[in-house]
Structures are given as C-alpha cells and as structure tokens.
Write a protein that binds this DNA or RNA. Structure first.
Lengths: 203, 203
DNA sequence: GCTGTAAATTGAACGATGTTCAAAATGGGG
DNA sequence: CCCCATTTTGAACATCGTTCAATTTACAGC
C-alpha cells in the first residue's frame, strides 16, 4: 500500500498524468483505464479519484498535455525564421504538424476520438489551449494582410489550420489512402498552400 | 421471446441497423449498446451476435449508412446544375456538407470518434464508400483543369473536401468557437473556396 | 512519547459494458 | 406426429467507471 506521504497531491497528479501519457503511447486511448494507471503507479484505483473527480477530467488533462506539446512544436523557430519567405515557413509549419501526428499518433488521435459527454462544454483552460494554436499561423500570415482586414487574416489562419488538419485526419482515420503514392500528403499540403496563398494575393 | 420466423436474417439485420440509427440519433454513439438495441427490437442481446459477429462490425455498418446518406446529399442535383457557375456549385456542396453535419450530427460525429481497434484495416466495401465521396467534387472541378494534369484535379478535390471537413470538425468538436460570430463558418468556407479556386486559376 | 483527529488510501461493491455458449424454444421435412 | 437443424435466449465472465465505508497513515497537542 502506498504511503500517504509518498507524494504530495501535485506530485501525484504529475505521476498519474505521466503514467497516462505512457499508457496512451503504448495502448492508445482505449487502454487508458483507471485500474491500468493504478497498477503502473502502485496505487489503488480509487486514489485516482482523489486527484481527478472523474476519468473525463483525466482525459481532458492528457489532451491538455498533447495540446501543449503541439503548441511548442508550432512555435518552434524552425518555421518562424524571418529570413525565409513566409510561404516557406507556412509549408514548414504544415510539415511540423504532419510530423507531430505521426510522432504522437495515439495522443493526437485521442484529441479527437474523445468527445465530451452529451452537452458538456470544455473548461476555460482547455479552450484557451486550443485557441492558442492558431496564433503562430496568424503571425506567419501577416505579410499577406498588410492592406487587408485583420478579420480575414484570422480566418485564413483557421482555414489553413483546419485544412492541413483535415488532410492529416483523413489520411490517418479515413481508412483509405487519399491518393495512390504513400507520401502524397506533403505534396497535397504544398499544393493547398500554394493555391490558397496565391488566391489571397490575387484578391 | 421473439419467434424464430418473425423475420428473415436479412430483415433482422435491417431492423437492428434501423434501431441502431435511431439510438445514435437520440443518445449518440455512447448509447449504442447491444442490450439497448436488443430491448428496442424485442430480442435478446445474444441475437445481435448472430447477425454481427462483434459490435465493431455493427459500428462499421452504421457508419456505412451514414456514408451512404452523405453521398446521396453530395450527389444531389442542387450542386451539380450545369447552368450555374462551377464555383457556385462548389460553395453549394460545401454548404450541403455543413448542413449534413448539423442534421445528422451524432451519426456524423460517430464516423470519426469510432476508430478501428489497434492495427485493423477497414473492409473493402467501407473504403469504397469513403473514396466515392470525392467523386462529385472531382466532377465540379473539371472546368478548372482542362489544361492541367488530372492528378492535380484529384488532389484539389481531396484538399477542398478535407478543408471543409476540417472546418466543420473544429467547429463541432474543437470545443471553442472558431471566430466570434455564430455562423462564421459559411463565411469561412466561402473565403476558402474563393481563395483556393482563384489560386488554381492563377497558376 | 502518547493519543486523538483529520487526511489519504484502500478494496469491495454496484451497475454497466462486450462477448461466449450451453440450454431451451422453434418450425419445417420425413 | 415427431425429429433435428436453426434460432433464440439468458446466465456467466471479465472488464469498465464510480462510490464509499473501513482502514491506514501522519501529525498536532498534551
């Protein structure tokens, strides 16, 4: 039996989340059960409910970790170089997103396969993490919107983001290859960005 | 107890699927359980396993129904009018997709929240239903690709499809409004299509 | 150092879930 | 009419999220 003072409540929370992260990596979202976590961290299942009132809260917390990791990737200097042309940075960002979906596939999938029960809304902190994801792309789009309304730039960021995501999601879960060659995805995101950006400039 | 000759095996399959459809509509994917179906159709739970070897097969079958309904919508003459300019038909198709996600929200969500276990591949008939969805949009794009490679047209269809889907998906499950006004989604899909098509023409 | 109290931890229990399968019910052919 | 292949059943099994009384633990006060 685990001792009461083995870990503080915050430490315990970290331990639970860390174990959860590893379980999702190995067995996917389906393998993330209270009893499985408890066994890995040498506690009883009930203890988890002292830290997370329900498993749904834990799921959201794990998704929060994934969103943080994704934000860190999209904020990387790799795709915010001022020397490079903007469109190149945008393509780089799309590539980083695609890489993320492959490197953290189970965690990335869990972001979307877990949905809140019935009519529940996501907590404030979670929504903030989602919204934050658009910021890096909004910045990259600035050069194209010096003479255009800011609202259009925000829209463009969300559109591009959703498009790249949609392509990756269909590739991973559409249960069918999008087009014959294996890595046609980078070709498609490239084509998407080329056309969309050219469309912005021509309007 | 249900009589052995109440329904043929095929009838029973239809009855199970029909009941499943209604359950998903009312309680979402989470409510779709073998015992719930059994109660609604006045059979024992075990009977379902005579028709579907596992619940996963039933889930796929329900998703198949949803894909069929979606295909029927996207094939509607509403967005294939030869008199209208192509871009207007494309916007109409995007609008029809968006309508579908609202009208059949639980079924549409189930398409993506249910993922096959571990490394299993979707059956052939399912993949065919997915691929078929791109065809109507490929047709609408023909006017823009009379002088360009067919491969690009296929890519453009998948890109546009994934983009519109990505926007709808983020709107429904992103757990945060994309942009302040309520129905900014049609504005965003419009902007997406305008820019993307303009980009195609300018290249 | 002892004790009492508040907090942390446990593990059994409850109602679900998907799934299996022996037993029962059924109905058409000999 | 009865036999037997088919269909249907419902109890059983392992597992799930969740609850909660009982136990164990750590520490404050004497």
């Amino acid at each position: 039996m685990a001792r009461r003072s083995d870990h503080t409540r915050d430490e315990l929370k970290d331990i639970i989340l860390s174990a959860s992260w590893d379980i999702v990596k190995k067995d996917g979202f389906a393998g993330l059960t209270a009893r499985h976590i408890a066994k890995d961290i040498n506690y009883a299942a009930g203890t988890i409910y002292n830290v997370f009132p329900a498993m749904d809260d834990l799921y959201l917390a794990v998704n929060g970790m994934t969103l943080d990791k994704l934000y860190a990737v999209l904020s990387s200097p790799d795709c915010t170089a001022h020397s490079a042309p903007p469109i190149q940075n945008i393509k780089k960002m799309a590539h980083l997103y695609r890489d993320f979906t492959k490197t953290y596939k189970p965690h990335w999938l869990m972001l979307f396969t877990y949905t809140l029960p019935d009519g529940k809304k996501a907590p404030e902190w979670y929504q903030a993490k989602v919204t934050r994801l658009f910021a890096p792309l909004e910045t990259l789009l600035k050069p194209y919107y010096t003479q255009k309304p800011d609202r259009h730039r925000k829209m463009a960021a969300r559109i591009l983001w959703a498009s790249v995501h949609g392509l990756c999601f269909l590739e991973e879960t559409g249960k069918t290859p999008l087009i014959t060659p294996q890595d046609s995805l980078s070709e498609m995101t490239g084509y998407l960005i080329d056309c969309f950006v050219a469309g912005i400039e021509s309007k």
